[in-house]
Computed example of a mutant assay.
Amino acid sequence: MLTDERWRELLRVRASDPGAVKRAYDERLRRKRLLSEKGTLFLVAADHPARGALGVGADPMAMADRRSLLERLLVALQNPAVDGLLGTPDVVEELLLLGALDDKVVIGSMNRGGLAGADWEIDDRFTGYDAQSIVDFGLDGGKMLLRLVDSDPGTIPTLESCARAVSELAAHKVIAMVEPLPYRRDETGKLILQKDAVSLARAVTVASGLGVTSAYTWLKLPAPEDNAVLDASTLPMVVLGGVPSNDPAADLASWGRTLRHDAVRGLVVGRTLLYPPDGDVGTAVEAAAKVLEAAK
């Protein structure tokens, strides 16, 4: 889908016509509604590289190849069941220049400063889109990552920044997609995601209360084993794909169980669909779409 000719043209425009990016934002055909006709939302996510998270499985450089990433995104976005994209400005703008985001939902990724593996990882500064740019560029919402580590003071400025972003987006009647994830550090200092119901439910309640209003807040959560996590808020929720496993069938089954909950509206999945074990992006996306359709 990304021929040599299209690739070279993208590189030419990047080098010689930076104003083309603003024109592409302005000329994008916006979708009139956020949700599909069935009331669901299915997005592919591509904001990992901006946080330095490039690895997939055994390949630490999988997402470093930008042409490969864009090709995979083009395949995913051509499936009519995929409502749109969650991405950082660079990826969004490349897909805009390739004409791939017309009539698609576009959610801008906001805080990417908590670089993967960095000492300051939990102090996740806002280094991508801000609320005003999301409005000015005509995007459909902003996404923020909120990792909660009780032993790490970096959680505090991230909490405050996320609360401010939720309020600013709501003032413009634009959705804020908050991804609250509870972590702890092991004896080596490595961050470990806490998947138990108590930790996840606590994260949900903290995220639900951010900002001056929750009217436009959505939550992005891993598929929990206990519905008590999903029962902790009335806010609309989407299931995140998480770290790809070697068992796509198990991932699909886990998503399917969570999607049946009334508060859960859809999927936001990145590496699991873009880098499946067999390399077949189209089939992986179609399988996820069928799971969503069956659940709703």
Rank of each mutant, 00 (worst) to 15 (best):
residue 153 P to I: 06
residue 105 V to A: 03
residue 69 L to T: 06
residue 123 D to A: 14
residue 111 N to L: 09
residue 169 L to N: 00
residue 101 L to T: 03
residue 91 V to Q: 10
residue 165 A to V: 14
residue 84 G to V: 06
residue 168 E to D: 15
residue 117 G to R: 08
residue 127 T to D: 09
residue 123 D to W: 09
residue 167 S to F: 07
residue 118 A to N: 05
residue 114 G to W: 04
residue 131 A to I: 00
residue 135 V to N: 12
residue 124 D to W: 06
residue 110 M to I: 11
residue 147 R to H: 10
residue 170 A to R: 06
residue 116 A to C: 13
residue 80 P to E: 13
residue 163 A to V: 09
residue 82 V to A: 04
residue 140 D to F: 03
residue 78 Q to V: 13
residue 140 D to V: 05
residue 146 L to Y: 11
residue 166 V to C: 06
residue 137 F to Q: 15
residue 172 H to P: 00
residue 162 C to Q: 00
residue 147 R to N: 03
residue 152 D to K: 10
residue 121 E to I: 08
residue 141 G to V: 03
residue 116 A to W: 14
residue 72 R to K: 03
residue 116 A to Q: 12
residue 75 V to N: 03
residue 153 P to R: 04
residue 88 T to M: 09
residue 100 A to D: 00
residue 135 V to S: 14
residue 172 H to M: 04
residue 135 V to M: 08
residue 138 G to N: 04
residue 95 L to F: 09
residue 155 T to A: 13
residue 167 S to W: 09
residue 166 V to H: 05
residue 139 L to V: 03
residue 117 G to A: 08
residue 139 L to A: 00
residue 171 A to Y: 02
residue 101 L to E: 07
residue 81 A to G: 15
residue 71 E to S: 06
residue 159 L to H: 06
residue 78 Q to G: 09
residue 116 A to H: 13
residue 169 L to H: 07
residue 160 E to T: 14
residue 88 T to Y: 05
residue 144 M to L: 12
residue 103 D to K: 11
residue 105 V to M: 08
residue 93 E to M: 06
residue 124 D to M: 12
residue 70 L to P: 05
residue 131 A to Q: 02
residue 126 F to H: 13
residue 92 V to Y: 05
residue 76 A to H: 12
residue 85 L to I: 05
residue 150 D to V: 15
residue 135 V to Y: 14
residue 108 G to M: 03
residue 84 G to W: 10
residue 95 L to D: 01
residue 141 G to C: 00
residue 93 E to Y: 07
residue 172 H to I: 00
residue 130 D to G: 04
residue 170 A to D: 11
residue 122 I to D: 10
residue 110 M to R: 11
residue 104 K to Y: 02
residue 124 D to K: 01
residue 119 D to I: 12
residue 135 V to L: 15
residue 170 A to F: 11
residue 146 L to F: 08
residue 99 G to I: 07
residue 98 L to W: 10
residue 100 A to K: 04
residue 74 L to Q: 12
residue 145 L to M: 15
residue 136 D to P: 02
residue 170 A to L: 05
residue 77 L to S: 01
residue 106 V to W: 08
residue 73 L to V: 07
residue 96 L to D: 07
residue 151 S to T: 12
residue 81 A to K: 14
residue 130 D to K: 01
residue 86 L to V: 07
residue 109 S to K: 13
residue 117 G to K: 07
residue 97 L to T: 07
residue 171 A to P: 01
residue 103 D to N: 12
residue 172 H to A: 11
residue 172 H to S: 11
residue 80 P to T: 10
residue 124 D to L: 03
residue 158 T to W: 09
residue 155 T to R: 08
residue 68 S to F: 01
residue 159 L to S: 08
residue 103 D to H: 11
residue 170 A to H: 14
residue 172 H to T: 03
residue 132 Q to E: 15
residue 154 G to W: 02
residue 87 G to D: 03
residue 101 L to P: 04
residue 151 S to D: 13
residue 146 L to K: 02
residue 164 R to Q: 14
residue 85 L to H: 01
residue 69 L to E: 09
residue 88 T to C: 09
residue 158 T to F: 06
residue 98 L to D: 01
residue 111 N to Q: 14
residue 70 L to H: 04
residue 91 V to C: 10
residue 171 A to E: 13
residue 154 G to E: 02
residue 104 K to F: 01
residue 117 G to Y: 05
residue 146 L to I: 00
